[in-house]
Write a protein that binds this DNA or RNA. Structure first.
Lengths: 252, 252
DNA sequence: AATGGGCGTTGCACATGATGCAACGTCGGC
DNA sequence: GCCGACGTTGCATCATGTGCAACGCCCATT
């Protein structure tokens, strides 16, 4: 809608692929160098873009700060966190919390028992939306036309032989999930990883987030993991209750 | 430099404080509602801003993705990570990696032994720049006028009685750090936490990052922590060597 | 040393595109 | 069922962003 801003913002994903110099930015934007320069300068002033010694531009530190503040303002996450930790202590497996937003599903919290490292490497990454248990839970709550629209737009990569293959299968899966109120991913993303998940609901019953427990085959079989389902659902329900009770999105 | 983009970008930190509706955004920007609307729409198209059910705006998911890609493009971090993990396995304490950028110091990696949770809660957060060991290391490498300029611009909050109190003390501390090639923070940020840090240098000798080991008094005394200094320096030097050797910022 | 090319930068004239206004539509509340 | 608040739209004005061309700088080449 606003050409100037549109161009400026287009620079960000461009730089996300790696540093670039002024000429490259101008070319890929299809504008004159001087125009690109002014846009970059403006981005720079706001800290979204950083200029390294070789004068090339890359994404700046303020982006982290913004993403950080953004995630901290999600009250679901704040409420859920203690419950996730507790669940992790009880079962020992990796616990995820995710939300749906604008055709994307993203993790907003994670508690991992065994490898504490590189935790943030998942946050913000595109979730395998067609197979992940949390994605199914979040999409299953949309209206039927919404589900259909999204299902048709998606790609269905065959991560494994058990990945959801196409829109039809996905919609059927969503119907099942919607009906039963929980979801699984049994080796659909990585052959040896299984997940069980349950939805977190707001006061109006709408799904506001989804959580899941993941574990590799070598630790527990899929059947054993499924025995955790009651525990997972209880945890999700506890979060739902607390979230509904504490007047969501009410503070400052 | 570019008014339109400048206004649009000013919306982001504004929303970082919490969701806001169109009127609030327009007012705080000092522009007409219709102008704010178009800016928000453009931000929305790029996924930087999200519109929740109550029509209020908040920061969007794409920010996470961008911050994520940005951090992955930092090759220091990639190279350092294994070394940090190794160090953590040897000493058991929390290990940090930080860089300096545009008057800010930020953590770009962290390995925590005891509480694997909420790791990302530190990433992107403003580091206590006047007291943190990594901050001293990074600032100590700047030129004298740069150091002076920054030292005078900073605030010197007294987190504890041992916090660095003012610009003069800070500059003296930086001189010491610059001289000795390592830094500490002994209860300057939190009364019971001590840190020891060492710099990571590029091929030209400039400090490109800094790392530190942190531990609470109740686990090890400051003196015991200081015995780790050789190990910390060895790790930092190993990272420096690998970073310098592998032709930094050279791939794609 | 001297020269040439590449890249970032600046000032400027032009007109495109951003701005504020006022009017309309819609939703929610007293 | 009316009133007020808020988001939304079309439009006339002109402020602002745009591309051009010229400059200066650094590095690489001979």
């Amino acid at each position: 809608m606003s050409q100037t801003v549109d161009r400026a913002l287009s620079i960000l994903p461009l730089l996300a692929q790696g540093p670039a110099d002024l000429g490259q930015v101008a070319e890929r934007l299809g504008v004159h160098k001087s125009t690109a320069l002014r846009l970059l300068r403006t981005l720079h002033e706001h800290g979204l873009v950083y200029r390294q010694q070789d004068q090339r531009y890359r994404l700046g530190a303020r982006l982290f700060a913004l993403a950080q503040e953004a995630v901290e303002n999600l009250d679901v996450r704040e409420i859920a966190h203690n419950h996730l930790v507790e669940l992790n202590e009880q079962c020992g497996h990796t616990v995820h919390l995710a939300v749906y937003e604008e055709n994307e599903v993203l993790y907003i919290d994670k508690v991992e028992s065994r490898y504490p490292v590189r935790m943030y490497s998942r946050i913000g990454k595109p979730v395998a939306i067609t197979v992940a248990a949390v994605a199914k839970l979040l999409l299953a709550d949309l209206t039927e036309p919404e589900r259909r629209a999204i299902a048709e737009k998606l790609d269905y990569p065959m991560y494994t032989s058990r990945s959801v293959p196409n829109a039809g299968a996905f919609l059927r899966e969503l119907a099942v999930v919607r009906e039963q109120g929980w979801a699984t991913d049994l080796g659909g993303h990585e052959e040896s990883i299984n997940c069980v998940g349950a939805p977190v609901r707001g006061a109006d019953g709408r799904v506001v987030a989804a959580m899941s427990v993941s574990a590799p085959n070598v630790v527990v079989t899929a059947e054993e993991l499924l025995t955790l389902l009651p525990l997972v659902r209880r945890t999700a329900d506890a979060i739902s209750r607390e979230y509904s009770g504490s007047t969501p999105t009410e503070k400052a």
